[in-house]
Computed example of a mutant assay.
Amino acid sequence: MPSWFDLMTLDISGPEDEAGIKKATETVHQLIADEEKNGIPTERIMLGGFSQGGALALYSALMFTKPLAGVIAFSCWLPLNKQFPEAAVGNLDIPVLQCHGDIDPVVPYKFGQLTSDVLKKVMKNLEFKTYKGMMHSSCEEEMQDAKRFIEKNLPPL
């Protein structure tokens, strides 16, 4: 299955592909650098993703030292969570919208809650939203919340 890094298990305490996570993070950071070379300031770049992509967006933002506009993380977890909050090197002040369905069978809701608990120890502007009855998917309410988040944190020039 195409992925950013290997998933060895979906157990929150199981082994993780640290080398793969860090390599994928380098790829995200290079994408940001490419946009910056094209004249887009990092403060106008927002990261986001669903499931593994959301996990990578969170991790990449925390490991990026230049300011970003924010992160939207759908139905995900924080990779290498045992290394946090100490491992965070950047973007602790950026806004984060973390969204999760309360009956997600793939990335359990508890993973989202635990991620939120860890991030709130170091991040000042994190909002964790729960969507009742939503599985590992999306819903209109979540998309509207994401739209409002983008409009608020990345206004038109």
Rank of each mutant, 00 (worst) to 15 (best):
residue 101 G to I: 08
residue 104 D to S: 12
residue 123 M to W: 01
residue 75 S to E: 04
residue 115 T to I: 09
residue 104 D to N: 11
residue 66 K to N: 13
residue 116 S to L: 03
residue 66 K to I: 02
residue 122 V to R: 15
residue 112 G to M: 04
residue 112 G to S: 07
residue 49 G to V: 00
residue 125 N to I: 05
residue 92 L to V: 12
residue 109 Y to R: 02
residue 108 P to A: 07
residue 66 K to S: 12
residue 74 F to I: 14
residue 79 P to V: 05
residue 123 M to G: 00
residue 62 L to W: 06
residue 50 F to I: 05
residue 104 D to W: 10
residue 68 L to T: 07
residue 87 A to D: 01
residue 92 L to I: 13
residue 105 P to C: 10
residue 73 A to K: 08
residue 96 V to D: 01
residue 101 G to Y: 06
residue 64 F to L: 05
residue 96 V to I: 15
residue 98 Q to D: 04
residue 69 A to I: 02
residue 120 K to V: 13
residue 116 S to E: 10
residue 102 D to L: 05
residue 118 V to E: 03
residue 78 L to N: 06
residue 94 I to L: 14
residue 64 F to I: 04
residue 60 S to F: 10
residue 54 G to D: 02
residue 62 L to N: 01
residue 93 D to K: 13
residue 85 P to S: 12
residue 125 N to H: 14
residue 115 T to P: 02
residue 99 C to T: 01
residue 60 S to R: 04
residue 101 G to E: 06
residue 103 I to E: 10
residue 51 S to R: 09
residue 76 C to Y: 08
residue 114 L to R: 15
residue 49 G to F: 02
residue 78 L to I: 11
residue 109 Y to M: 03
residue 75 S to K: 08
residue 99 C to A: 13
residue 123 M to F: 10
residue 71 V to W: 06
residue 73 A to N: 09
residue 58 L to F: 10
residue 120 K to M: 15
residue 111 F to E: 01
residue 116 S to I: 03
residue 89 V to P: 02
residue 91 N to A: 00
residue 62 L to I: 12
residue 100 H to L: 00
residue 91 N to Q: 01
residue 87 A to T: 04
residue 102 D to W: 05
residue 102 D to Y: 03
residue 90 G to H: 02
residue 56 L to V: 00
residue 76 C to M: 09
